[in-house]
Every structure is written in structure tokens, then in C-alpha cells.
Amino acid sequence: MKRRGLFYLQLGFTLLVCAFLVVPVFLSIMAGLTVNYFVGIESGLTLRWVMEVWNGYRDTIFLSIGLSLACLAVTLVIGVPAAYVLAKRQTALTRALEEMLVLPVAVPGLATALALIVTYGSLSGFRTSWAFILVGHVLFTLPFMVRSVLAVLSAIDLKTLEEGAASLGAGFWPRFRDIVLPNCRQGILAGSLMVVTLSMGEFNMTWLLHTPFTKTLPVGLADAYASLRLEIGSAYTLVFFLMIMPLLLALQAFAKPRPAKFVAEDAE
């Protein structure tokens, strides 16, 4: 029967997803909680490795949180007005700018990082501060903020809405505050979560940009895997998960489209 064939195909696909997505994650988490990974789960469960991660890499966690929030602040300040201008002025120049904004996503992070180091690496105060990583992260995440806000702004008739507000006496700033911002709230929220998540997990660029004193969470993770026990590396993954999962869930919730409402004409 055809339906049976399809059923097995779906089951096979689900199992494949489990085998490569869910099981490794689960095993990795278990490894981080196991006393001795090579002995197996019989050796007992422990939070010792998690505590070691906390003691050894606490700073990377705080730096990552701080960095992603700073990155969010910068992308909000630059990205939202940029999206507004791009939405309002559709010229050849703004279209070119829009394309160029996406370049850092297309170009390998390593290349961007190298270019930054070549250009600004000699400014030692800047090179050794976390601001150096921040620049890289902003370059990488800005297009996600701009795109996300721009998508929402393009879907509404922004020009007429603003004209409507202006006809009621609202100048530029009240219009921006009362009409533009509230109407692209969804885009700003989705963009914000995207930026924080991406900044938190960014490794490529950060790996080149960091110094021993400016290690972020993913860089620390690589470090832990490379130089310490497998259990600590796995416990590190667990910590990373705990931080990133709520963000991803929130992202999912905001990305949900609002159901369109049908309204019939009143017979009046």
C-alpha cells in the first residue's frame, strides 16, 4: 500500500534525525554528567564536571553574555534606523547598501576576522579588548537585525501610516516612536533574539579575534575539548545548552505568524 510506504519513509527520516540530532546531544549531555565516560553510566552521575566548567570558564560565560548584549545594543541602534531608511528610500544606492550589509554573512568569518586583524591589529589597546570581538560580531549579526526589521516594515504601508500620523499633527520623532517602532516590534524582537543567539554561538571569527583574556563561551568550549577531559568538554556543552535553549524557544515563539482574521461587512 502506498500509505504504508510513505509511513516507513517518514519513520526512517524521523529516526535519522534522532540519530544525528537528538541522540548525540543526549549522549553529550550524559557524558558531562557521568563520573567516568569510558567506564560508562555505571560509574555514576555527578555535577563535578559542570562545577569545574563553572570554576574554570565562568569568565567566558559572563563575557559571552556581555558581548551578546552589547552586540544587541549596537545592532539595535544601527540596524533599526538603517532598516527604516532602507524601507523608506528605495533607490539604487539603498538597494546596493542592503546587499553589501549581507556580505559579512556570505564571506567566511575567518576572512572577516583576518581583515580586521590586518587593518586594526596594531592598535594594541583595541586589539586586546573585548570591543575588538564586538566589532566582528556586529558585522556578522547586523544584517540579521536589518533584514528582520525590514521584512516587517516592507509588509506594512509605512509611508501612508506616517502621513496619517503627520496629518494628525505628529512630527518626525513622535511618528517614529508611536507608529514606526510599535509596528515593527515583531521584527525587532525576532531580530534581537537572532542577534543574541548568533553572537552567543559565534566561533569562526571569535576564534581568530580573541586573546587569552577575551575568550568567549564557544572558544572556551573548543579549548576545553582540545585540552581537558572529554567529560568537562561535554559538561561545557550542557552549560552552553542551558543558556541558548531558552533563547531559541523564545525565537520560535516570536516567529509564529499571527493568524489572519476575516471580517465580514456589517449589514448596517
Binding site: L161, G164, N183
Partner: peptide, 10 residues
Amino acid sequence: VFQSYALFPN
């Protein structure tokens, strides 16, 4: 009054 009404959805 605009053709598309320009009412504020927010």
C-alpha cells in the same frame, strides 16, 4: 482621510 485609511494597526 486616505484611500487606504492609514489606520494605525498598533
